[in-house]
Nucleic acid binder design. Structure first.
Lengths: 144, 144
DNA sequence: GCGTGATATGTTATTTAGTTACATCCCCTG
DNA sequence: CAGGGGATGTAACTAAATAACATATCACGC
């Protein structure tokens, strides 16, 4: 089962190294974001031992847009959208109830940010947009 | 109004505790964001010894909008805009050259994010918008 | 095949960031 | 003056990320 995936399929790049594949796999099977140490714990059985092994893989994966880092969580998710790297900036909605993350693109936001950058002479290299709150499901099941 | 200011002075709330004042002061005098441990180092002379003392003060300060946390940096800045807490969400442009941070508000962005939230049933409690890149000055002095 | 440079790996130790747990102190109010 | 809430102080700890160094792997030119 090297490549395909039940349900939602991912862009499995064919040239990932073993460690990168393991890390991406761990993220892909997780319901919620994982910290580097969470990933490490899941992969001890596969022979990974040190944080650095995870961080190195994560660096490559995020570079290529196959995974994303959630800054406000110090954690990582598998990219949910095959085309996200084409659409430039991505936003995340992080549920503080169930921990799940939704990834979405709002082109207008990106263009507004680029607009601000242009007028202030700032040259952006990376954009982070994260919402914290409660997802639909968690709001519904709130303590009445 | 009660706490107004000249020049680049701050909105000094009149009811800060000693530790909160020290921490806010440290941030206010810094050119760039400071980590909690940076702040601690600056305040050892004032009798502060433990990280927790800093974190507690920072919690209160960020709660009140007098300081902001930069998620992508694990660091803090003094709020630059007396009215930022009125305008809801704030965005930051972080220069990777000189380390300085610009704080700006883009109401359209906030409303777009609220729009997305509404349609997806997400109830946001906090929004993080951070740009990384190079400020005007640093771009200008780039290695030709 | 052989050298060589770029990239990926493995391992240990260390630094940086943030929290838990617990005791104390100060002030306000009844 | 009792008792509660908030701020403080201190030590020990967990979590996140990096430094430094040693090997291995692979592609490429010769």
């Amino acid at each position: 089962m090297a490549h395909s995936h039940a349900g939602h399929d991912h862009v499995w790049a064919d040239d990932l190294t073993r460690n990168q594949e393991l890390v991406l796999g761990a993220l892909a099977h997780a319901e919620a974001p994982l910290s580097a140490y969470d990933i490490l714990d899941k992969l001890r059985g596969d022979g990974l031992r040190a944080p650095l092994q995870i961080y190195r893989a994560l660096d490559k994966l995020t570079e290529r847009g196959l995974a994303h880092r959630l800054e406000s969580l110090n954690a990582f998710v598998c990219c949910a959208d095959a085309h996200c790297h084409e659409s430039g900036s991505i936003a995340f909605a992080i549920c503080e109830g169930c921990g799940k993350v939704e990834e979405f693109a709002e082109p207008v936001i990106e263009s507004k940010l680029r607009g601000w950058s242009k007028t202030s002479g700032f040259v952006p290299s990376r954009m982070t947009i994260e919402l914290r709150g409660l997802c639909k499901g968690c709001v519904a099941s709130l303590p009445a």
